[in-house]
């Protein structure tokens, strides 16, 4: 039976995050020929609505209010709840990002509904949607469903394919007018710490450094490789603790959980806490001086060697082949 699926899209620095498109893709699958409605909230989001259609939304709802400039659970909660009430969807999808993690449980609680957090896969079993999600830091997986009523889930970035972009797709944008009031939390200041333009949690390629990077300057060859590949730079907790880089780069159990297509670990020993954040990456390359380092146990390809020798050579080699192809 065709279903009505509501997807809450997320923008960052006035650009839609890729996971929003992936959530629309997931919504299409769940809708099974029904309607996917994408909703977007913010201070000024009108320039973003076209893209939601290009990635497959059948209808778009926007809420604009200066009180929605920064995400707050009260502000966005009010906006999204009103949309949920007016749409009355069969399923709601949100990105499993800071925003989604903060907001989805509140919506679920308000609606007395089940919520599947951090889904990495979706399949349909007749009428029932079955989600796959990692548990115990990716050491195991579970398949989970909502027993009855509205289905709510958050979608982990980089795991569910977005539809191919089709710029000919368009549709009608509805404006929902919401009276945002009684904000109990006030965002006083936002301090941007993430440096590179590539969003770590959504990057297709990540070049990560550990203690073996030895200093802040030691990250430079990694950054050069990353720039060439359009990759994001990440780090192990060891590198962050040693002050070689900011904690915003940390990948692991504490820090970000990432699943890029390619993860290049440079001078990372592979402590279990780090593996928890990256072991589900599609392809892992390990570069480490120590042949016994446990990172080699999860790596698809390994080079035993000094990262300061290997990484610049790798950059050179990629430059060569990428130019000729």
């Amino acid at each position: 039976m065709a279903k009505k699926v509501l997807v809450f899209a997320e923008a960052r620095d006035n650009e839609l995050r890729n996971v929003s498109f992936e959530a629309i893709g997931a919504g299409k699958e769940i809708a099974a020929g029904g309607e996917v409605i994408a909703a977007i909230a913010g201070e000024n989001v009108s320039s973003l609505t076209d893209q939601l259609f290009h990635y497959g939304a059948d209808r778009v709802i926007k809420v604009e209010d200066e009180k929605l400039k920064n995400y707050t659970s009260d502000g966005y909660g009010q906006a999204f709840l009103q949309i949920v009430e007016s749409i009355d969807p069969d399923a709601i999808l949100l990105p499993h990002t800071s925003m989604g993690k903060d907001l989805a449980p509140r919506l679920a609680s308000k609606l007395d509904a089940g919520l599947i957090s951090d889904a990495t896969g979706i399949e349909l079993d007749g009428e029932t949607v079955v989600f796959t999600r990692p548990i115990y830091s990716g050491k195991a997986f579970e398949k989970k469903k909502v027993k009855e009523g509205i289905v709510i889930a958050t979608i982990r970035p980089n795991n569910i394919a977005a539809l191919e972009i089709d710029e000919s797709r368009s549709g009608e944008v509805f404006e929902e007018s919401v009276e945002i009031k009684d904000l109990r939390t006030i965002v006083k200041e936002v301090v941007r710490k993430s440096t590179s333009g590539v969003d770590l949690s959504e990057a297709k390629v990540i070049v990560a450094g550990g203690r073996g990077v030895k200093s802040e300057e030691g990250f430079e060859p990694l950054q050069e490789l990353a720039d060439l590949l359009g990759a994001a730079v990440g780090a192990s907790r060891g590198a962050c603790d040693a002050d070689y880089c900011d904690y915003s780069l940390q990948i692991g159990q504490t820090g970000k959980v990432v699943t890029p297509d390619l993860y290049i670990a440079c001078g990372i020993s592979g402590a279990i806490q780090h593996l928890a954040g990256m072991s589900n990456s599609k392809v892992i390359v390990a570069i480490n001086k120590d042949p016994e380092a446990s990172i080699f146990n999860v790596a698809d390809y390994g080079i035993v060697g000094d990262l300061f020798e290997v990484v610049p050579l790798l950059t050179q080699e990629f430059k060569k082949v990428l130019q000729t192809s």
Binding site: A140, E142, D300
Partner: peptide, 17 residues
């Protein structure tokens, strides 16, 4: 409100090269 249908371990990764 939710039900776990199955729990499983990730497929063993073949030894890397």
């Amino acid at each position: 409100k939710t039900e776990t249908v199955e729990v499983y371990l990730p497929p063993k990764k073949e030894a890397g090269k």
